[in-house]
């Protein structure tokens, strides 16, 4: 985790699921509490599960309530994005995570950004 101006960059490695979600939740909480916007790098995630995607939504909801936003970057593994599309979180699979916060169904954004 590194601080860059008013943005915290979180780089997630490995599987975004039950095995890592508690630790990541603490990381998100700290980042939202301590700094401005949060940028999440997803290029190194190998899998995603329900707890992982829920965490991203919950963090975005928390951030939005604090007037902050969560953005993403990284090239997504096709299996991950197909999985998200099959589950209806995405309308269709996407490769570049840069637009993920705009493309995830009902993804929370700060009030002023709407």
């Amino acid at each position: 985790m590194e601080n860059a101006r008013l943005q915290t960059v979180l780089e997630i490695h490995g599987s975004l699921g039950i095995e890592s979600v508690r630790e990541l939740a603490s990381g998100f909480s700290r980042a939202i509490r301590e700094t401005g916007d949060i940028h999440v790098v997803l290029s190194n995630i190998s899998d995603i599960e329900l707890t992982g995607i829920q965490l991203l939504y919950a963090a975005a909801k928390e951030a939005a309530m604090a007037g902050k936003r969560i953005t993403f970057s990284g090239i997504l593994d096709s299996r991950i994005t197909i999985k998200l599309a099959s589950a209806g979180f995405l309308k269709e699979p996407l490769t570049d995570a840069a637009d993920l916060h705009k493309r995830l169904a009902g993804f929370p954004v700060p009030e002023e950004a709407k």
């Binding site: 939740a25 707890t51 829920q54 965490l55 919950a58 909801k61 209806g88 169904a105 009902g106």
Partner: peptide, 23 residues
């Protein structure tokens, strides 16, 4: 298949139990 997850059930982070299923 058209899948529609009910994401409105996911709470804010401070109220989240990360290992629980909400959707």
């Amino acid at each position: 298949c058209t899948s529609a997850p009910n994401v409105s059930l996911i709470p804010r982070l401070s109220a989240l139990d990360p290992e629980k299923a909400y959707c």
